[in-house]
């Protein structure tokens, strides 16, 4: 993957490079809006990591220009400004995610991976996590290349979890997917989650429960 980093702090730029290059990415870093704008015109980037406070302008104008051009390259905003207004404005202008400085490298890697995966999925019409693959066109699931036959509600549940690609899937969202808007018992969803958990046992994937919030499909850590 080709990543464009627009960041004027050299220490941060270097750590981003050090963190993201080993994951198999090519990282190109710029410190000024103008240079970055010129590079973006060339195209071919899979993700842009954009700092807002730059020496020659505001990163948001760069973002705005990109979106006006119809450039849909995913953008992750990195900034020390953590006011809600800035966040909202950034997202309104078409940023895909937002990370406030200071951030941990682990957090950054997770966000980058999720964004790349999401854009990947958009392009090949498949949801993937580890050994699991969900073909959106056919509705077929494979685990380690082995087809996995699932009942309809488990299939819907898996699709819901995968669609969040590593984030928590809110239970309200899952419930409406599985049961429509009708009344359901409080633990009806839990039943299907248990079933799916059993099927995924030993695959290196697990479903974590967040009380009152939802579930997350994640890879088990070594």
């Amino acid at each position: 993957m080709r990543l464009l980093v627009v960041e004027d702090d050299l220490l941060i730029a270097r750590s981003l490079d050090n963190a993201l290059t080993p994951l198999g990415n090519i990282v190109e870093a710029f410190t000024h809006c103008a240079e970055a704008g010129a590079a973006l015109h060339q195209g071919g980037f899979d993700l842009v990591l954009l700092d807002l406070g730059l020496p020659d302008g505001d990163g948001l104008t760069l973002l705005e220009a990109m979106r006006e051009r119809g450039d849909t390259t995913p953008v992750l905003i990195l900034t020390a400004r953590d006011g809600v207004e800035d966040r909202v404005r950034g997202l309104d202008l078409g940023a895909d995610d937002y990370l406030a400085k200071p951030f941990s490298i682990a957090e950054l890697e997770a966000r980058v991976r999720a964004l790349l995966r999401r854009s990947q999925q958009r392009s090949d019409n498949q949801l993937r996590l580890g050994p699991l693959c969900f073909d959106l066109a056919s509705g077929r699931v494979t685990l380690d290349e082995t087809p996995l036959e699932l009942p309809r509600r488990e299939l819907l549940l898996l699709e819901g979890l995968l669609s969040q690609t590593g984030d928590i899937a809110p239970r309200e969202m899952l419930e409406s997917r599985l049961f429509g808007f009708g009344e359901v018992g409080s633990n009806a969803l839990e039943v299907y989650v248990s079933r799916l958990r059993k099927r995924l046992q030993g695959s290196g994937l697990r479903i974590r429960t967040f009380r009152g919030l939802g579930y997350r499909l994640e890879e088990e850590r070594a």
Binding site: S104, A106, E107, A110, D167, I168, P170, F210, G212, L213, G214, R216
Partner: peptide, 8 residues
């Protein structure tokens, strides 16, 4: 809460 729960 959802945001924090998802954090590292």
């Amino acid at each position: 809460t959802l945001e924090w729960a998802g954090r590292d």
